[in-house]
Design a protein around this nucleic acid. Structure first.
Lengths: 350, 350
DNA sequence: CTGAAAGCGCTTACAG
DNA sequence: CTGAAAGCGCTTACAG
C-alpha cells in the first residue's frame, strides 16, 4: 500500500517502473520471468518491487491473457461428506497447480439452478468447470463441451458419455457387494436405490439386477426402494421390510448415508447386525469407518477420482489434450469389508 | 459465441452495439439498468443481446469498477464437517447476495500457508475475506484489518479481538457442559483440550477450569489432555484414564470429533456409556446426532455463525458499516442433551 | 537488451 | 436521451 495525500492507493506497475527508473513493460518482463534482461536492471526492478510492496494485479492480467487461473466447481451439496472430501482434494491440488477454485452448490437442482451456476462461472471467465452431480440428461454440460469449453465431470455422468469424465465402475461395484452377500449365504436381498436420474444410481441398480439374476438371488418388487434420498424414508422402508413376513437377510444400499438409515431401522427393531441382517453401503465416506458404524461398503476411491478429474481439466485448459487423453476414465471399485456383514441367519457360509 | 472466418470469438459489447445500431456506452447503460433511456432503444439493445447471446464479461467489469463480487474463504480443513457445513451456508448466501466464493484450505497452517492464501486472494482482488481457523496470534489478519481491507473472522478469534468477528461464547459453553455433568452427580471429570493456540480451545479450557473450581469438581493434572487433535492420541488417553485407578466418571471433550474417540475408548474397554462414563462433546456436528453416536454436546449455532459472518463482511465491503456494526458478535452456546450422559455411577442425581 | 504503442472489454464522467 | 473519450492495470508484438 502506498500513501498519497492521505489516501491509500494500490501500488501499480507504473509506480515500480518510476521507482526503478525503467519503463513499465520492463517491469512486466521481470515479473513474468522474461529471459533477455540485463541482470542489473532485473535487480533494480526486484528491489523496487520489494520496497514498494508491489503485488501484481491478477484481474488486469486476466483481462489481457484471457486466463483467470480460476476453475469452477459445481456440486450438489457442499456439506455432503463425499463432496466435502473431494472438494478439499480439488482445492488443494488446484492451488498447487496455480489455480484457485470457486465452489457452487446446486442443492441437487440440475435444471435452472445448474445452468445459472454455469452462466455465473462463464461470466467470471473461469478457465474451466468441474461438475459432479449432473443428472443423466444434463444438456447444459454437453453444449458446453461441444462449444470447446473445458469441462470435466466426475462421479456422475451423462447418458451418452459424450463429456470428459472420471467415474467409478458403479455397475461392477454393486455386483461386488452382491457377490459378497451371496458368498455369505444370503439368498434374499433388498435393495435401496437413490434417484435413477443419476448415472451412479442407475448403474448400481443395473449391477444389482444383473447380479441378482446371475447369482440366483431372489427379490420381490417390495424388496426394492427406488429413488430414495431422505433418511426417514429409507428408515421407514427398512423397518417395514424387516418386520414384515419373509424379510430379506441382506440389504444392499446404494449410498452409505442411506445404509446408516437401514442400520438405524434394524437397531430400532432390536435386530442384530450382522446377526439378523447384513448391510452393505456404497461410497465409503469417512464416518462409515467410525467404530460405531463400521459399515461394509464399496469404496469410491474419491481421492483418486477428484485428482484425476482435476488433472484432466487442467490438461484441457492448457491444451495438452493431444496426448491421447481418454474421454472417459473408469475407476475400479473396491469392497471394504467391515462389521455390518456376516453369514446369513441359520445358514452356513458357502 | 459468434462465428467469424471459422473461429469462435466471444461476442463483446461492441458487437451488440453495432447490431443494435447504437453506441457502446448505450449498451452498457441498458445492461446496468441506467434509468434515462428511450424505451425503444432499450428494446433494440435487449433484442440484440438476446440474439447474439451476449454475456457481459465480469472480469472487464471488475477491472474498471474495482470490485470482483467474489469473496475469499480461508479454512483449516474443508473436509472437516464443521467447515463443510458452514462453507455451504456461506457459498449459498453469498451467491444470493451476488457474490461468489473462492475457498482455500490451510491444513491448519496458520503461518506461511495462511499468509500465502491471503496474498493469493488479494492478488485476485477478492472484495473481502472470511477466515475461520486463525490462531490467537495471527498477525496477518490484524494487519489486513488495519489497512482497511474488509475481513471478518468466525469461529476462532485473535487474542485482542481487534478484528471483526463472530464467535461462540466458548467459555460459557464449557461451563454449561460442566454444570450438566455436575447436576448428574459427577464429581470427577476429565478434560480433553484441542490446541490452546486457538481461541476456541483456549476459552473452553478456561470455562472448564473456572467451572470446575466453582462447582467443586476435582481433577488432577493427569485428567487433562492438552493440545490434542488426532483421533488415536485422544483414544489412547481415554483408555489410559478409564483403565487406571480412580477413573473419572465424566469426560468433557472440546470437540465432537475427539469425543467420538473417547466413546470408542469406552467401548473397547467394555464400559457402558452413559452407565459407566458420561461424555459431552462440543460443536454439534451432523454425525453427533446420528443414532449410533447420539452425543450430548454443546451446539455451535454454525448456521447463524456463518450467516452473520457473511453479513458483517458484506456490510464492510459495501461500506454500510456506519450503522453501528459491532466489531464482535458473540453467540450463545446451547447444550444438546442426547444419550451419552447420565447419572454418575453409584450416585443419585442431585 | 529496452521502450512506445496498442489493446484486453468494460464503465464513467462529460458534452451535447 | 445518447455518444466520444479516457481509463482500469496489465501484456504483447514490434522497433530500435
Amino acid at each position: 500500500l502506498h500513501t498519497e495525500d492521505g489516501e491509500v492507493r494500490k501500488v501499480s506497475i507504473h509506480d515500480v517502473a518510476r521507482h526503478a527508473g525503467v519503463s513499465q513493460p520492463t517491469v512486466s518482463k521481470v515479473i513474468n520471468g522474461y529471459p533477455n534482461l540485463k541482470p542489473s536492471t532485473r535487480q533494480k526492478v526486484l528491489a523496487a518491487i520489494e520496497e514498494l510492496g508491489f503485488r501484481p494485479d491478477a484481474i488486469a492480467r486476466s483481462m489481457v491473457k484471457n486466463r483467470t487461473f480460476t476453475i469452477g466447481l459445481i456440486v450438489g451439496d457442499i456439506a455432503n461428506p463425499f463432496y466435502a472430501e473431494t472438494g478439499k482434494e480439488i482445492v488443494r491440488r488446484a492451488h498447487e497447480a496455480g489455480y484457485e477454485v470457486v465452489m457452487l452448490d446446486t442443492d441437487y437442482d440440475d435444471g435452472e439452478r445448474f445452468d445459472a451456476c454455469v452462466e455465473t462461472l462463464l461470466a467470471k471467465r473461469v478457465d474451466g468447470i468441474l461438475a459432479s452431480s449432473v443428472s443423466r440428461d444434463n444438456a447444459k454440460v454437453k453444449a458446453l463441451h461441444e462449444s470447446g469449453y473445458p469441462v470435466v465431470l466426475f462421479n456422475r455422468n451423462v447418458d451418452d458419455r459424450s463429456v470428459p469424465s472420471v467415474e467409478l465402475d458403479n455397475e461392477r461395484g454393486a455386483r461386488l457387494a452382491l457377490e459378497h452377500l451371496a458368498s455369505l449365504g444370503h439368498r434374499r436381498v433388498a435393495y435401496v436405490s437413490g434417484p435413477l436420474r443419476y448415472s451412479t444410481f442407475h448403474d448400481r441398480h443395473r449391477g444389482f439386477a444383473a447380479g441378482a439374476a446371475s447369482l440366483g438371488l431372489s427379490y420381490e418388487p417390495d424388496d426394492v426402494l427406488e429413488g430414495a434420498f431422505a433418511y426417514e424414508e429409507v428408515r421407514r422402508f427398512a423397518e417395514r421390510r424387516l418386520s414384515g413376513e419373509r424379510p430379506p437377510t441382506g440389504f444392499l444400499v446404494s449410498s452409505d448415508q442411506m445404509a446408516i438409515a437401514v442400520l438405524d431401522a434394524a437397531s430400532r427393531l432390536g435386530l442384530a447386525v450382522p446377526g439378523d441382517v447384513s448391510v452393505v453401503g456404497f461410497d465409503n465416506i469417512d464416518i462409515s469407518g467410525n467404530p460405531f458404524i463400521s459399515l461394509t461398503t464399496v469404496s469410491q476411491q474419491k481421492k483418486r477420482m477428484s485428482m484425476l478429474a482435476l488433472e484432466r481439466l487442467i490438461e484441457r485448459i492448457e491444451g495438452r489434450t493431444e496426448e491421447a487423453a481418454p474421454l472417459r476414465t473408469v475407476l475400479e471399485p473396491e469392497l471394504v469389508v467391515r462389521n455390518t456383514t456376516g453369514p446369513a441367519r441359520g445358514r452356513e457360509e458357502t
